[in-house]
Amino acid sequence: MLLEVLQGTEAGGFILLQDTVSYSGRHLLKSYISTALKREEEVVHVLGFEACEKEFRDGLDRTNAQRLHFHNAYSDPLGWTGNSAFTVHQFTLEDVSTLIKQTPQAKAVTLVIDSLSWILRHHDPAAVCQRLQALKKGGAVRTVIVLVHTDMHQRGTVGSIRHLATSVVTVAPGTRGLGAVAKTTRRTKSGKLMQDEETFSINEDLSVTIHSKLSHPGHTHVNTDETEVDPTANLTFNLRLSDTERQAKEKLALPFVFSKEKKSALLQPGPGSGRILYEPDANDDYDQEDPDDDLDI
């Protein structure tokens, strides 16, 4: 699943890469960029706030390096010196669009933001969400991939951004020093949701190797060691009936069962049924008056 997300098969996607201080997601981000650069006619724009260009390009394939456009906001993110290539305040739809329009020949543009945490600290989160959505919908960008340090923000802020994302990858350090764990949640266009949790490691050439799938939410664990026991195998009594036994059983009239014959016998009094005989007695208290004579019927 992680590999599918990294391949970026889906257009118009918004991938959110969540990391914390215990494991950095930048390596995964870089391996995404390197796979994107391997595709022909794909241009990657990076808004870099947290690493300098040299560090960022380090390890990436040099043959495709001219298709990676690094917009340096690392040296002067707030524009204090006045000659910054990109500042935090320029994170608006217009400014980002003009940046992307610098490469008009590009067929597919991937926008990488490293990291959104910087932007979130200087902009209203609601505005950031609106701009991201506009970028995603705008059509100028094929994929937006964003790194967020979740431990730097309020839960609601991260939640709102996650709400917009089509794919969310959360990275955490692996147990027993084995690589790292990535929790991937992917939403398809039809609204279907897929989740996976995998351990992975990143190789020298920034390719990702999946080691194991930890668990499949949605698939129940089936204990294979538990052999199915047939409880009817060794019984002290007979569970199955032979034909004669079955016939005998069906002949038996069960109590408290209302068969049709029984019902009709009860409803239609036969010749031998009982009758009420009543002879008036002298001591009977018989009321001559009609109790209902006051009613005008």
């Binding site: 989160p125 609601a126 969400c129 309020q154 609601g156 709400h163 917009l164």
Partner: peptide, 13 residues
Amino acid sequence: GSALWGDDLCCRD
């Protein structure tokens, strides 16, 4: 009430 409506109801306490 989502952030896309320009409401920061979801973002802040």
